[in-house]
Design a protein around this nucleic acid. Structure first.
Lengths: 222, 222
DNA sequence: TGATTTCTGGATCGACCGCTCCATATCTCG
DNA sequence: CGAGATATGGAGCGGTCGATCCAGAAATCA
């Protein structure tokens, strides 16, 4: 009954997510959202409640389409060790492919997770556990096949990899540089007894063959 | 000469920094700042120009008092390997000691600096390089004394440690848990051939070669 | 078709934003 | 003691904020 929606909800959430991702939650106004989604304020409020509701929906779609989708794709098509390496290769490619250097929307969201936003805090925490569990499964499985060689605790290794992935995404916002990222990941792979970053086995973003040079080239002075 | 300032600039910057740290830049209003610093808007604007100027000054004071001060203190009083372990022990303690779980102001700033704030991006990037250089110095020096054992590239190891430290600070906002932090750091120390953590910086027994000073008590600053 | 229901677009609400102005208070200097 | 210079406190500026209201458009029912 009644008039049906004229917009595609997934597309609207994607557009809103892009805007939130680029500017951050607080700095994004409802007028920004109206402009990027093509909807009017009243349509947005009728469909999503309020600004926070729209953010939560857009974040959830991002996490589903980008993070969880990637994990299950890697696990389905690669060996455990290759999946770990492939995950980092993908994160590096994505970090460099984004000309705006926005990093990871999940990591950025961790900023909004102040103590008076416990729901957001929990969403981010849960998602880091999703990633941590992926790493742990890879390590446990990779050991059984002998692909991964280390006698350290699998859970601790998984959490270590988690922190590396999160830290990489922080650096992606301020120092987008392939050499930095690949160098920083190398000790992690070596620690697991894995070969250095493999030929990008079909990672998700294989279209990124033509990359611009990083804008910032630093000389290291030890 | 006219009437002198009635406020202590350092104290005002500290108060403003606390507020920015807690709420984030965008979510902090000038009225919030007036309330937390005890100044009126006009005094703030006369002294610091605008909101952004106050933020930059507060951030700089935070970086000086917390980050750089800690690095030089660790390097002055501990062996290279102990300095690395002590840094992580300190970050863990600080992450857990803060009841608001605000993480690191530098990391928070990184996640809020968009591409149209190149100056802030630059400040954050430079500060990550400061931390990276600290790690690299420790690794290079620790190798000469035999305290640190690994044949991997020192620069890559330093960047790896940097990403772990940044990732830990992200997790500090959403999963403040000592076991998580200590477990995640353990593989990093093991990789360097260092003993595991219960080495809180002020309880490390100095069996390896110390630097000049005898072990000094570490002081926590907010 | 007409009745009903829902969605859309635009105007607009009160609140708050960053910031400024100005009268007054309080200092230094002569 | 002025005279000059600067800081302070409070009112208030124009603008934007998140959110809402409402009249009209467009769909599904009979």
């Amino acid at each position: 009954m009644g008039r049906p929606r004229e917009f595609d909800e997934r597309a609207v959430l994607a557009a809103a997510g892009e805007t939130f991702w680029s500017k951050g939650y607080e700095a994004t106004s409802t007028r920004d959202l109206a402009a990027s989604t093509g909807l009017t304020a009243s349509s947005i409020y009728a469909a999503f409640g309020d600004k926070r509701g729209l953010y939560l929906r857009a974040l959830d779609q991002y996490l589903n389409d980008v993070l969880r989708e990637r994990i299950s794709r890697l696990e389905a098509s690669l060996s455990p060790g290759q999946a770990v390496a492939g995950y980092f290769a993908g994160v590096i490619d994505r970090s460099l492919a984004d000309p705006h250097h926005r990093g990871c929307m999940l990591v950025n969201t961790a900023l909004e997770a102040t103590e008076n936003n416990p729901d957001i805090q929990r969403i981010v925490a849960d998602e880091t556990i999703t990633l941590e569990s992926f790493f742990e499964r890879c390590i446990v499985d990779g050991r059984q096949t002998g692909e991964i060689a280390t006698d350290q605790d699998a859970g601790e290794l998984a959490r270590h990899l988690l922190s590396v992935a999160l830290g990489l995404r922080v650096l992606a916002r301020v120092r987008p540089d392939r050499e930095l990222f690949e160098g920083l990941v190398r000790p992690a792979l070596a620690m697991l007894g894995l070969p250095p970053l493999p030929a990008r086995a079909d990672t998700v973003n294989s279209k990124a063959s033509n990359k611009r040079n990083p804008t910032r080239k630093k000389k290291e002075t030890p």
